[in-house]
Nucleic acid binder design. Structure first.
Length: 274
DNA sequence: CTTGTAGTCCGGATTCCCCT
DNA sequence: AGGGGAATCCGGACTACAAG
């Protein structure tokens, strides 16, 4: 179909025919467009003279073609940009949904733990004895489980629990007993919540120990020596409760949130007693 | 110099037509 | 029916030019 000059009223074309430029004409126009997307009036007339295949197209039509061509390119770029944005938002939404799910489960667990500690600290109103223990580590969810019946929640009682679980941890650290205790709503493994009790004598060092029980004993000892690294990637620390001890010391209940190794993995949460 | 008018161009929106 | 392309409509920006 040959191009025809337009004119005959509204959206009209010659002889009432809708015209399409031939593939050759379109190819030539596209080539010229890539050379110069916005030719001047003079340049457009020059193009018609230089390109015989365009000779039967009116200058006004050439002008309109370039105008529409720029418009189409702009629309395509915008559509492409919006598709890219949509892909990113979809991916982000997926991550947020997963994180939301994880946090909701975590909230349920924390509400449960909060109730437990609140109950225990109320019972601990009377005098208590501080036993300033050595490094005490516990994967604390143990003493929340039915296998450890509720006991005295005084500082001495807590330390007693800590010592007991330290022994358990050390047995795990030797490689004789490696297993994670799954928290309700949490997947098993290093990303689960751990509760660790440690004394002021070894500040923070054992905090990551709950994540080490799957390692070789020598590797555990090596990491334990690296004290600065324990708080290096800690993004949140909260002192939730402070209990005085008989010898003037204190026991603090801390909540720590550690950055996960990768940006996409969830952060790890630890509860500390020190 | 300022102002009003006409002409031109452009982008955006819309209409019209053809094709699948 | 819906998509794509050509053409039209409309308003804004810019320029040239004549008149006051």
């Amino acid at each position: 179909m040959m191009a025809m000059s337009c004119k005959d009223g509204k959206g009209g074309m010659d002889n009432g025919k809708y015209v399409r430029y031939t593939p050759e004409q379109v190819e030539a126009l596209e080539r010229l467009y890539h050379e110069c997307p916005k030719p001047s009036s003079l340049r457009r007339q020059q193009l018609i003279r230089e390109c015989p295949i365009l000779s039967n197209i009116e200058p006004k039509q050439i002008k309109v073609w370039f105008q529409n061509r720029r418009c189409r390119e702009k629309q395509r770029k915008e559509a492409s940009r919006l598709q890219a944005v949509n892909r990113k938002l979809t991916a982000m939404n997926k991550l947020l949904m997963e994180e939301n799910d994880r946090l909701q489960k975590q909230v349920s667990q924390l509400v449960y733990e909060n109730g437990y500690f609140r109950q225990q600290t109320q019972k601990a109103g009377l005098a208590s004895k501080d036993t300033s223990c050595e490094s005490v580590v516990t994967s604390g969810q143990h003493h929340l489980t039915p296998q450890h019946p509720p006991r005295d929640a005084s500082p001495a009682g807590l330390l007693s629990i800590a010592e007991e679980t330290l022994a358990e941890f050390l047995s795990k650290a030797t490689g004789t007993a490696v297993e994670w205790v799954q928290m309700p709503g949490m997947k098993p493994g290093p990303d689960s919540i751990g509760i660790i009790a440690i004394s002021h004598g070894c500040p923070g060092v054992a905090a990551r120990a709950c994540g080490l029980v799957g390692l070789e004993p020598t590797r555990v000892a090596e990491i334990l020596k690296d004290r600065p690294s324990w708080f290096r990637d800690c993004r949140a620390v909260d002192v939730l409760n402070v209990l005085p001890t008989a010898n003037g010391g204190t026991i603090e209940l801390l909540y720590m949130q550690l950055y996960a190794p990768t940006t996409l993995a969830p952060a790890r949460d630890f509860w500390l007693l020190r």
